[in-house]
């Protein structure tokens, strides 16, 4: 494997030395482009109290291409599908090389705080969300307790 670009080394250093509150990202030992990520559910959201595991991979073209991010913990969210794939503009068309791993993770945290059922990835979840938001939020809380509670992990 080619030498790790300085940009990735710098970003990793900063993620470790100056972590974002509520977010951890640790590079895998055998592949420094692969990160184990955890995000705490934002306090005022149905995901509060949950700790969500994600994986993040920096492709060869990084930072010209967006990192690939996926939820590993099951989550009930209109913009995240069964496989954990995330519908987020900065991960797709609006990616810019000037963005970083930390900004992307912050955007994902913000997505948990503000689900957007009008631009859904998981159609069934989005429909529930639009039909009966209270019930959907309750469901999201249940899933959080069931799959993402810190005590169960």
């Amino acid at each position: 494997m080619a030498a790790l670009p300085k940009r990735i080394i710098k970003e990793t250093e900063r993620l470790v030395s100056d972590p974002v509150p509520g977010i951890t990202a640790t590079p895998s030992e055998d592949n420094l482009r692969y990160f184990h990520v955890t995000i705490e559910g934002p306090s005022a959201s149905p995901y509060a109290g949950g700790l969500f595991k994600l994986e993040l991979y920096l492709p060869d073209d990084y930072p010209m291409c967006a990192p690939k991010v996926r939820f590993l913990t099951k989550i009930y969210h209109p913009n995240i599908d069964k496989l954990g794939r995330i519908c987020l503009d900065v991960l797709k068309d609006n990616w810019s090389p000037a963005l970083q791993i930390r900004t992307i993770l912050l955007s994902i945290q913000a997505l948990l705080a503000a689900p957007n059922p009008d631009d859904p990835l998981a159609n069934d979840v989005a429909e529930d969300w639009k039909k009966d938001e209270q019930a959907a939020i309750k469901m999201a809380q249940e899933w959080t307790a069931k799959y993402a509670s810190t005590s169960s992990q």
Binding site: W95, S96, P97, L99
Partner: peptide
């Protein structure tokens, strides 16, 4: 160097290529 890589990657879809900065 960054601009060259950026333009090469962005040219794949044949759309106008915008400034590297996000939101610019």
């Amino acid at each position: 160097n960054c601009y060259q890589k950026y333009v090469d990657v962005s040219n794949r879809n044949g759309q106008l290529i915008r400034c590297i900065q996000s939101n610019c």
